[in-house]
Computed example of a mutant assay.
Amino acid sequence: MFGLDIAAVSFDTALDVLCAAAMQRDGRARVAVTPNVDHVVRLDSQPEFKRLYQTADFLFADGMPVVWASHLFGPPLPGRVTGSDLLPALCERARSGGWKVVVVGGRPGHEAALVNGFAQHYPGLDITVIAPSMTFDPTGPEGAAVAEHVSAAAPDIVFVCVGMPKQERWALHHADKLPGGLMLCAGAAVEFAVGLRERAPAWMQRCGLEWCWRVMQDPARLWRRYLVDDRRFFGILWRHWRVARTQRRAA
């Protein structure tokens, strides 16, 4: 769907698969991404980045519109598997299993706030926070230095939370520099997990209105993304539906 091999699995199955990946040690980390409407729109206009994105080991549908769209193309996805749900669930698994976790993200100079947040919500979790600069280049010298730092820590799980597309570019570019484990590209999920930002109510999540909640929280930064740029999703959906219909008729 949309040129992406999105896994048609439940949340529980996805969580189990990612936990198994976290335990692998074969010379590279596995990368998980969670495409939503914003991702689909960006990927449609960036073919080079889309080719890189497609190489992720695990792709799970984050947005309800992506789940709804799957009913047009079949087989339908069973539901959302969001980074905002995966991150806390993986923290619980890591805490109970004694796994080591690294977060790449957060505001430089405020790493202690994230560490304290994790300590409060997931006591006993082995957590390290690395906050890149605001001008972080995922494939430049700083990106390489962060990758070396992460590799030296030998974590089981890396939460990459520097925003799309930087987080995906960094994770997919440097995955083979880690001995193994899992890298989850999770954006703002880290702030939701430790209470630094409030997530949308459950009913808004179910109705596909989580984007509206986020715009209300940070309108200056997000209004254009959700109210202008992401409207292109409907044109992309129409185009892919026409292609799928033509292919079905030809078959």
Rank of each mutant, 00 (worst) to 15 (best):
R30I: 01
P108H: 05
H240F: 12
P47E: 04
P75D: 10
G195T: 01
G98D: 06
G163W: 01
A56H: 04
P123K: 02
T139H: 10
R239I: 03
W68P: 06
M64G: 08
P78D: 05
D218E: 14
N116Y: 09
V158Q: 03
W238G: 13
L125D: 05
W170V: 00
D218Y: 08
V41C: 15
V160M: 05
R214F: 10
L86D: 06
A145R: 03
D218L: 07
F58Q: 02
R225Q: 12
P35N: 07
V9A: 14
G117S: 07
D16Y: 13
R232W: 11
L227V: 09
V243Q: 13
G109N: 07
R42G: 14
R25Q: 06
V228D: 14
R169S: 00
R28Q: 15
L184G: 07
D230K: 07
E191R: 10
G27E: 05
F58Y: 14
P123I: 01
A61I: 06
E168F: 01
W241K: 10
C212K: 09
P155V: 02
V37D: 12
W68N: 04
C19F: 10
L182R: 05
L59G: 09
P108L: 05
R225F: 10
L86R: 05
A193E: 03
A89N: 09
D85Q: 03
D85T: 04
R93L: 06
D230T: 03
E111H: 01
R25V: 00
Q120F: 10
R95N: 07
A147M: 01
G74H: 14
L15K: 11
L59T: 02
A147S: 03
L114F: 06
G195M: 09
F73W: 13
G117M: 01
R239M: 13
S45Q: 12
P141Q: 09
W238C: 12
V101G: 09
V31I: 12
H110R: 15
F58N: 02
C212D: 13
A193H: 11
A94E: 02
S151Y: 05
R93I: 02
A112V: 02
P219L: 02
R95S: 06
R248F: 08
R221C: 08
R214E: 08
P75Q: 14
Q205F: 09
V146T: 02
G140V: 02
D176F: 11
H121S: 10
D126T: 00
L114C: 04
P78S: 07
P78Y: 05
H39W: 10
K50Y: 13
M164K: 15
W170M: 01
V67F: 15
E148P: 09
W99Q: 05
L222Q: 07
V40L: 12
M134S: 12
F2S: 01
L182S: 02
A14C: 13
N36R: 09
I236T: 11
A171I: 00
G140P: 11
A188V: 02
F58M: 03
F136E: 01
V17K: 12
G109V: 02
A154C: 14
L18Y: 05
V194D: 11
A20Y: 10
F2A: 01
A186G: 13
V17C: 11
G163V: 00
A69M: 07
H173G: 04
P75S: 12
R225T: 03
D38F: 11
W238V: 04
